[in-house]
């Protein structure tokens, strides 16, 4: 069973293709003291899909606000786009979150 939780009113999905935005969930389980006081998650629109993911890069902890979306490639079996951290260049599959190469 999935634990669906409401996102507070006023939060909207990103409209610009490939530009990472944030949603403040304000959910206790998503908040993290100093690093994420609003329980923010990141979201990006790409190829008619919305992808939602952690607001900070797991590798360097920098917010993913300037992360770049790359098209699917053989690493993601041509099925899912990829996300690259603008700061440390770590790259992840937006299909399953796995760290690539």
């Amino acid at each position: 069973s999935l634990n669906w939780c409401p996102i507070p009113a006023g939060q909207t999905l990103p409209t610009t293709e490939g530009k990472v935005g944030f949603l403040d969930t304000n959910l206790p389980t998503m908040k993290n003291g100093n690093t994420n006081p609003t329980g923010a998650v990141a979201a990006v629109r790409y190829d008619d899909n919305i992808y939602c993911f952690a607001s900070a890069c797991p590798s360097c902890q920098v917010p993913l606000s300037k992360a770049k979306i790359l098209p699917a490639n053989e690493e993601t079996k041509q099925r899912a786009p990829r996300l690259t951290c603008d700061f440390c260049k770590a790259t992840y599959s937006l299909g399953d979150g796995s760290k690539l190469q």
Binding site: I7, L27, I50, C52, F53, L83, G97
Partner: peptide, 21 residues
């Protein structure tokens, strides 16, 4: 470092929903 955590989003009656652990 581990994988990037992904979240599932939904919409019901114009309200955004998210699946959390």
């Amino acid at each position: 470092s581990g994988p990037l955590k992904l979240y599932k989003l939904g919409e019901q009656k114009g309200k955004l929903l998210i699946v959390v652990d």
